[in-house]
Amino acid sequence: RTVITEEFKVPDKMVGFIIGRGGEQISRIQAESGCKIQIASESSGIPERPCVLTGTPESIEQAKRLLGQIVDRCRN
C-alpha cells in the first residue's frame, strides 16, 4: 500500500473548529479516515493554514472530504 503525503490548506480562523475541544474533532477525523493530519502551528499571518496529510490516497481523500465538511459547516 502506497503511503503519500499531501499538503492541504484550511482557513486559519477555522483551525479551532477543526481541532475541536481537547483535539477530539481532529482525532475523530484521523480515526475515521485513517489519515494522519498535522496542522501547522503558525499561519504566518496568511489566511490559510497548511496541513500535512499522510496516508493512502484513499485515506487522504476521505480526510479532505471530512475537513471540507467542517469548513462548510462553519462558514454557514
Results as ranks from 00 to 15, higher is better:
Val3Ile: 15
Thr5Val: 08
Cys74Asn: 14
Val15Ala: 10
Arg65Tyr: 11
Ala31Lys: 15
Pro50Asn: 14
Gln69Val: 13
Gln38Phe: 07
Gln30Asn: 02
Gly45Pro: 09
Gly68Gln: 08
Ala63Pro: 00
Gln62Ile: 11
Val10Gly: 01
Arg21Cys: 08
Pro57Phe: 07
Gly22Leu: 05
Ile18Val: 08
Pro11Met: 03
Gln38Ala: 11
Gly16Phe: 03
Leu67Thr: 01
Ile37Gln: 01
Ser41Gly: 13
Asp72Glu: 14
Gly16Asp: 14
Ile39Gln: 02
Gly45Asn: 13
Ile46Pro: 15
Pro50Gln: 10
Cys51Ile: 08
Arg73Glu: 15
Ile70Ser: 10
Phe17Leu: 09
Met14Val: 04
Gln69Phe: 04
Asp12Tyr: 06
Gly34Glu: 08
Ser41Gln: 14
Ser44Ala: 09
Phe17Thr: 08
Lys36Asn: 08
Gly68His: 09
Ala40Thr: 11
Leu67Lys: 00
Asp72Ile: 03
Gln69Thr: 09
Ile46Arg: 11
Asp12Lys: 09
Ile4Gln: 08
Arg49Trp: 03
Gln30Pro: 01
Gly22Lys: 14
Leu53Arg: 00
Val52Asp: 04
Arg75Val: 14
Arg28Met: 07
Val3Lys: 14
Glu7Pro: 05
Arg73Cys: 05
Arg49Tyr: 03
Gly20Glu: 06
Arg21Val: 10
Glu7Lys: 13
Arg75Ile: 06
Asn76Arg: 15
Ser43Phe: 07
Glu42Asn: 11
Met14Cys: 09
Arg75Gln: 12
Gln69Ile: 15
Ala63Asp: 00
Val52Thr: 11
Glu48Tyr: 10
Gln69Ser: 14
Gly16Asn: 10
Gln69Tyr: 03
Val52Lys: 14
Glu61Asn: 09
Ile46His: 15
Phe8Tyr: 13
Glu48Val: 06
Arg73Met: 10
Val71Arg: 05
Lys13Gln: 13
Gly55Ala: 00
Ser27Thr: 15
Lys64Ser: 02
Thr5Gln: 07
Glu7Ala: 08
Thr54Asp: 04
Pro47Trp: 08
Phe8Lys: 02
Leu53Val: 03
Gly16Ala: 11
Cys51Ser: 02
Ser59Ala: 11
Asn76Ala: 15
Pro57Met: 06
Asp12Glu: 10
Val3Arg: 08
Gly45Asp: 13
Ile46Tyr: 09
Gln62His: 13
Lys13Asn: 14
Thr2Asp: 09
Ile70Phe: 11
Glu58Asp: 10
Ile26Leu: 13
Lys36Thr: 10
Gly16Gln: 12
Pro50Arg: 10
Ala63Phe: 02
Ser43Lys: 06
Ile29Asp: 02
Gln62Cys: 13
Glu61Pro: 01
Asn76Trp: 07
Gly34Val: 01
Ser44Tyr: 08
Thr54Val: 11
Ser44Pro: 10
Ile4Val: 11
Val71Tyr: 11
Ile19Asp: 09
Cys51Glu: 00
Ile4Leu: 08
Gly34His: 05
Gln30Trp: 02
Val15Leu: 10
Glu58Pro: 06
Ile18Phe: 05
Ser27Cys: 05
Ile46Asp: 10
Lys13Thr: 09
Gly23Pro: 03
Ser41Ile: 07
Ser43Leu: 07
Gly23Cys: 04
Glu7Asp: 13
Gly22Asp: 15
Lys36Ser: 12
Thr54Cys: 04
Gly34Tyr: 02
Val71Pro: 04
Arg21Ser: 14
Arg65Ala: 12
Glu61Asp: 15
Ile4Tyr: 14
Cys35Arg: 01
Ser27Arg: 15
Ser27Tyr: 03
Glu58Leu: 04
Ser43Glu: 10
Gly20Thr: 03
Ser43Ala: 09
Ser59Lys: 04
Asn76Leu: 12
Glu6Gly: 04
Ile26Met: 10
Gln62Phe: 11
Gln25Tyr: 04
Ile29Phe: 03
Ile4Met: 09
Arg28Ala: 13
Glu24Gly: 11
Ser41Thr: 13
Glu24Met: 13
Arg1Lys: 14
Gly55Cys: 00
Glu61Met: 09
Gly68Glu: 12
Arg21His: 12
Val71Asp: 05
Gln25Met: 12
Arg75Phe: 14
Ser59Leu: 00
Arg65Gly: 10
Val10Leu: 12
Arg1Leu: 08
Glu6Thr: 10
Val10Glu: 01
Pro47Gln: 09
Cys74Met: 13
Ile18Gly: 03
Gly20His: 03
Gly45Gln: 11
Glu58Ile: 03
Lys13Arg: 11
Val15Phe: 09
Glu32Asn: 04
Ile29His: 01
Thr5Asn: 08
Asp12Met: 05
Ile70Met: 13
Ile70Arg: 13
Leu66Arg: 10
Val15Asp: 02
Gln38Ser: 10
Asp12Phe: 04
Ser59Met: 05
Thr5Cys: 03
Ala40Trp: 07
Ile19Thr: 11
Arg65Asp: 12
Ser41Leu: 09
Glu6Leu: 03
Glu48Ser: 11
Asn76Lys: 04
Ile29Pro: 01
Lys36Val: 07
Glu32Tyr: 10
Asn76Ser: 11
Ile37His: 00
Glu42Ser: 12
Glu42Leu: 08
Lys9Cys: 10
Arg21Pro: 15
Thr56Gln: 06
Glu58Phe: 06
Val71Leu: 07
Ser41Met: 09
Glu61Gly: 13
Pro57Ala: 13
Ala40Pro: 13
Asp12Ile: 06
Gly16Glu: 14
Ile46Glu: 15
Glu24Ala: 14
Pro47Asn: 08
Pro11Ile: 02
Met14His: 08
Asn76Phe: 15
Cys51Pro: 01
Asp72Ser: 12
Arg21Leu: 10
Arg1Trp: 04
Cys74His: 15
Gly20Gln: 06
